[in-house]
Design a protein around this nucleic acid. Structure first.
Lengths: 349, 349
DNA sequence: GTTAGCAGTCAATTCTACCGAGTGCCAACG
DNA sequence: CGTTGGCACTCGGTAGAATTGACTGCTAAC
């Protein structure tokens, strides 16, 4: 027993320098070629100064410890999720090519328009930069205060509640009434709603009149319909860019189908991104995020803040063998620009 | 010369009964099997009462006339776009299975909520019914009149213009000013805008004050920003459902990529659907719609009207060998229900 | 501990032969 | 004269065998 412990010296999370170098070489090579990598190509890599035979013996160790796997006996090694994890954790952060940096700066120098449009275009940008599918999540307006509320009459049984928030977002909800709501009542309800709700957030508790006259009922219904929106997905907006990249970047129709099918469910995507952020990660590899259909994927996320408050995130979705350095750099740079764009500068915050 | 004309009796668009039957059998078979179909399988089809040899000689005729094609010498025949066109034109309209009819009825009996949500869910429904990708296009608010306009101040240089239309849609636009716009000015501008614009449509010409005081400038800028929206894509909304079906239904990564890439450009999709509608078609096969990347696709569209006025469309996108009868039935049924849903019934029109 | 050498494994490739689905053509038949 | 059965021919797909080559693991020497 004691002997065996001696024989496995570094069963802790870090590897000795040579193993680390070899592992990194394997991962880098496999990311480039998408092929299992063999001992000799690793040995010829500039960072490795040992013979293929030595590399081989190190590789069996790395395989035993779960960093590498062998598709079949006479093939090279392929990184496991754990192998990628090590690679990513020891990645020194890179920068984008200057052409790409220009592209990002140009983009943010020239975008204008509604937040929604900016986020959507950002998503396209990020996808073009990386050739992976990108996800941009805009924050919900849970914490934004209400600047204006208005009830507009469509017909006697249908009104439209329109609220404007301090973050520049606008929500609308239809309100239906059993009774005939006449113009004067709607106008009065609108006036009172404005007075009641202005300055509050969706989390605030507000006083509503408890009478049963038409105006009061309109008010109660409007408030409840507005506050009901919170738990749904409506709050967060998701913008997915470059979903066609999925077909380029993953192999196997089945994988493509699974990934697309996940991307269709926007609520799921938001949750995924939030989950990863909550775990404090910036990269989730393979099964780390717990979504089985995405086990062939790696997801990169970078938070976006407004005035220091979390206000969304940008993300990238690619195969586990994605180009982490470039993708991380792109996501990082875009998230920073986005933060700056909505933070200090000018456009509506 | 005269002799040759005699030899090609029916070079007009229709075929004699037997050719038609054979062509239809070929198309039907190929839709089922995705394989080139040979003379004997056609001859054994119940509608065809001749020998394989006869079928063969008819097939060479059909090939000469462009309805069929041969992938290579010793293979069966495959329909051309023209062949599918004939098939579709002579298709007697089918109905959905009663289970599917129930599904549609259930859906429309239970949906409620904003128009946008209904359309989005409809798109998912249609895709589930057919296992093709679906497209739902909602009309723009070009003809809707304005029920309410409001200018909300975000900060001294940024206001938000919010307009509510009679069709229940809400648009917002940010308005930036060089000068400091104070609360009272914004409120006054808001009041006047409301008065000026209410009851108008985006196509109306309106009188705006030509003074150069802050209030007038706010008004002018707001009106121009609102009327500027017209030509963009913003007016129409597109909801695409089941884009993951693309990966199931098309073969060849390249085709999948092309189709997805088209679907990403929502403006393009709207245009495509409108184009097909304008041509008075309900099905566009292969190159008929003129979008080269979609040459492997067939697109089915069915218009949706509100009170007799065109108000959008539902569409389906599948391979040229799609199940036309079922797909047409589904699109037709859904478009009818949608028309009814937004037409007479109750929910906000 | 490292390395060169060697035997062994196994997926991928190539080659061959062959099968069979399907055609075009022709001669016979009603 | 249209229809049909028969026949030779074409050619893609497949199955099997042989080959290749990129690996490995092991062992013995350095």
């Amino acid at each position: 027993m004691a002997r065996r412990n001696v024989k496995t010296p570094a069963s802790s999370s870090d590897l000795d320098a040579r193993k680390a170098t070899i592992l990194e070489a394997v991962v880098a090579e496999h990311i480039n070629t998408a092929q299992p990598v063999g001992s000799s190509s690793v040995a010829h890599s500039p960072d490795v100064a040992v013979s293929p035979a030595t590399v081989r013996s190190e590789m069996v160790a790395l395989e035993r410890e779960g960093y590498l796997a062998q598709p079949h006996t006479s093939a090279g090694r392929v990184p496991t999720d754990k192998g990628y994890r090590f690679f990513v954790d020891h990645l020194k952060s890179g920068v984008l090519s200057s052409a790409q940096q220009h592209q990002v700066k140009d983009f943010f120098a020239n975008v204008r328009g509604e937040v929604e449009d900016v986020l959507e275009q950002t998503s396209t940008l990020l996808s073009q930069l990386t050739s992976y599918t990108s996800v941009v999540v805009g924050a919900g307006h849970a914490h934004a205060s209400i600047l204006s509320v208005q009830l507009v009459s469509l017909d006697v049984h249908h009104q439209l509640l329109v609220a404007v928030f301090s973050d520049g977002s606008v929500v609308k909800h239809s309100v239906s009434t059993e009774f005939d709501a006449h113009f004067v009542d709607v106008t009065e309800a609108s006036r009172q709603l404005h007075a009641i709700l202005i300055g509050t957030t969706l989390e605030s508790r507000v006083q509503v009149p408890s009478h049963s006259d038409n105006v009061s009922m309109l008010i109660r219904q409007s408030v409840s319909v507005l506050h009901a929106e919170q738990p749904t997905t409506d709050g967060e907006q998701v913008y997915i860019g470059g979903s066609s990249k999925v077909a380029e970047v993953f192999e196997g129709v089945e994988t493509v189908r699974k990934v697309l099918s996940i991307l269709e469910q926007e609520l799921l995507v938001v949750t995924l991104v939030q989950d990863i952020l909550n775990q404090g990660l910036s990269v989730a590899i393979g099964s780390e995020h717990g979504y089985e259909p995405l086990s062939a994927c790696a997801v990169i996320v970078a938070p976006v803040t407004i005035d220091g408050v979390p206000a969304g995130a940008v993300g990238l979705l690619g195969p586990t063998r994605m180009k982490y350095r470039e993708a991380l750099a792109a996501a990082g740079m875009v998230s920073q620009h986005l933060t700056r764009h909505f933070g200090g500068e000018d456009d509506l915050a």
